[in-house]
Every structure is written in structure tokens, then in C-alpha cells.
């Protein structure tokens, strides 16, 4: 009995230590963003601000125009999320519930393509969008994000459990296929659509390489691109850069904290596919 009590104490000590180490960079990011200019670069570096100030956040929104980047990120993540929910749910439903020739083969092919690294597509994709005159347009980010194999897969797995009788009954009543999809299938798929929405929003918000390549005009920069750009000129301004990092991270972190059950569910559905 005594042995297990020692084990319990040791286990919790390791857990608390691990959690503290994991959260520390995020904690310091917030406290340093509230320090007066230059305070983070003192020896030894303080953990808490001597006086709390929001001046760096003010500077981000006024002089440095990061408000525009915040707007761009929000707009793009929202647009990609809504459009891809629509396209992925239609395709996922078709793969799960409608019979057509080649269904198994096409779906198997898509699953195999899931391991293809996205980075390999970047160069030709850039040239393609250049031919379409979409470089530095919002559409340059939105169009390629409008559907994903992972999204189709998630919806398909979920939609498999919808009973066929329900759909057939609606067909006998004369409902059109699109009506069946929009009024029966979509409401039933709500849980997985919430999960997919969080995944897509976070993924688009956090993406770096593609927006960096395709959004060449500063007025179109998303937050990660704007932040990397700002870092080049303001590397000495620790407190300012931390405020920029908080502005970039906090929205997705809060979104996750409120909806983490749904997020984790998606992660697990991806993990059990084999």
C-alpha cells in the first residue's frame, strides 16, 4: 500500500513539472508582452512585469498596422472553413451513402494520396495561380483550401452510420437528392462538421509556407507572415514581438480551450483509420 502512495506522489510530481515546463513559454510570452520597453532584456530576466503596460499592443494596431493582418487571417480562415465544410461534406456523403461505379477505387486512391507531402505541390501551384492572376489575392489562399482529402475522409466515416432506410424513405416521398443532403444528412453530421470546422480554421490560421509564397502584397499578409516580416525589423524589441505573438496565438488557443472535446475527437478519428 505504501509503495503505491510513493508512486502516486512521484507520478504527480512528474506531471506537474512537465505541465509547468510545457506551459512556461506561453506564460512568459504573455508576461513579457506586458513589460515596459527593454525590461525583458535585463540581467537576470524578470518573470513578471514591474508595471503592466499595453503600449505594445497599441503600437501593433496603430503604427505597425497588424490590425489588417488580423482581419486578413480572420477573413481567410472563416472563408476557407465555410467553403470547405460545404465541399467536403458533399463529397464525404457521396462516398458513404450513394452507389456509383468506381466508388471503392476512387476512395482508396484518395486515401493513398493522403501521405503525399503538400510541400511538393507548392512550386507548380504558384505557377498555376500566377496564370490565373490570383497571386496576392485572397482567392490564392481560399481556392486551394476549399477541399481536403482529410475532410472528405472524416465526413465519410461519420456518414456511414446514417441508416439507409431514412434516405430511401425521403426518396419515396419525392425529395430531391440535394434536399436529402441539406435537410437530412447535414443536420445528422453536425458533430463531425463542428470538429472539421475547428480543424480547418486552426490549420488555415496557423499555415505559413503557402500564404508566405502566394500573398506577396503586404496588405494581404496573414498574421504569421506579418509576424515573420516584423521580426526582421524589430528583433531587438522583445516586448513588442511578444505582443505580436500573443495576438497571433491567443485566438486559436481560446478557440481550442472552448471546443477541445470536438478537436480531440477529430484527432482520434484520424488516428484510427487503419
Amino acid at each position: 500500500m505504501k509503495k503505491s502512495r510513493v508512486a502516486t506522489v512521484l507520478l504527480h510530481a512528474a506531471l506537474v513539472l512537465g505541465a509547468a515546463a510545457t506551459l512556461f513559454p506561453l506564460f512568459w510570452m504573455i508576461t513579457a508582452s506586458l513589460m515596459p520597453t527593454g525590461e525583458a532584456n535585463s540581467d537576470p530576466p524578470p518573470l513578471l512585469p514591474s508595471r503592466v503596460t499595453f503600449e505594445h499592443y497599441g503600437e501593433l494596431f496603430t503604427r505597425l498596422n497588424l490590425g489588417q493582418a488580423f482581419f486578413n487571417s480572420t477573413l481567410l480562415a472563416t472563408a476557407v472553413t465555410l467553403l470547405s465544410l460545404f465541399l467536403n461534406s458533399m463529397a464525404g456523403y457521396a462516398f458513404a451513402k450513394l452507389r456509383f461505379r468506381g466508388r471503392g477505387k476512387i476512395f482508396g486512391f484518395l486515401l493513398a494520396a493522403l501521405v503525399l507531402p503538400t510541400q511538393v505541390a507548392v512550386l507548380p501551384l504558384f505557377l498555376l495561380l500566377r496564370e490565373m492572376h490570383l497571386i496576392s489575392s485572397y482567392w490564392g489562399v481560399i481556392l486551394p483550401g476549399m477541399a481536403s482529402i482529410f475532410g472528405i475522409f472524416l465526413v465519410r466515416q461519420f456518414a456511414l452510420s446514417i441508416p439507409d432506410e431514412l434516405l430511401d424513405a425521403a426518396r419515396i416521398d419525392g425529395a430531391s437528392e440535394f434536399r436529402i443532403y441539406s435537410e437530412i444528412v447535414l443536420p445528422l453530421c453536425r458533430p463531425i462538421l463542428v470538429t472539421l470546422a475547428i480543424f480547418t480554421f486552426l490549420g488555415t490560421w496557423n499555415d505559413f509556407l503557402w500564404p508566405l509564397v502566394v500573398l506577396t502584397d503586404q496588405s494581404r499578409y496573414t498574421l504569421p507572415v506579418a509576424l515573420a516580416n516584423l521580426f526582421g525589423e524589430h528583433v531587438q524589441d522583445t516586448e513588442l514581438m511578444m505582443a505580436g505573438s500573443v495576438l497571433t496565438v491567443l485566438p486559436v488557443l481560446l478557440l481550442f480551450l472552448f471546443l477541445q472535446r470536438h478537436y480531440i475527437q477529430g484527432l482520434l478519428m484520424g488516428g484510427v483509420k487503419e
Partner: peptide, 10 residues
């Protein structure tokens, strides 16, 4: 779930 560019800056 954090943004890589931001936390790499940190």
C-alpha cells in the same frame, strides 16, 4: 494548437 511562427519567435 499554437501558431508555429509565433511560438518559434517566443
Amino acid at each position: 494548437v499554437t501558431t508555429l511562427v509565433a511560438v518559434a519567435t517566443v
